[in-house]
Amino acid sequence: MNILKFLISIIFLINFFSSDLKARNLETEITKNLRCLICQGQSVYDSDSEFANSIKILVEKKLDDGFNEKQIYDYLKDKYGDWILYDPGFTKNTYFLWLLPILMFLFGGAIILRKVILKKKKL
């Protein structure tokens, strides 16, 4: 019974929020992935520096000009270097970055498998 009540209230909640929804904004997505050069710990989206504000306007302009996400990134990377992107991407510089954690995961899994399965076979 309790669970049922809970379900109803959750569904109610969802309706409550979906009314307020907007489609995800590509410009926001892009500026969140750009790092500000003035306040270097923040994204362009979060920052209010002059530089960040100009980048926001520029991204908007470029989108209007028909640039896609990747073209905008390439354009900015060309001007300011790879550093400006928060997403390091999968390039020759970042093979280790992406693969090392995955390798660790597989390695850990292997250790556990050995501990668990072996006994089963013995039985």
Partner: peptide, 14 residues
């Protein structure tokens, strides 16, 4: 006025 030419030039401050 909006600082976009500065970005075209690859500048980021004054």
């Amino acid at each position: 006025n909006d600082g976009t030419i500065a970005i075209e030039l690859g500048a980021y401050g004054v």
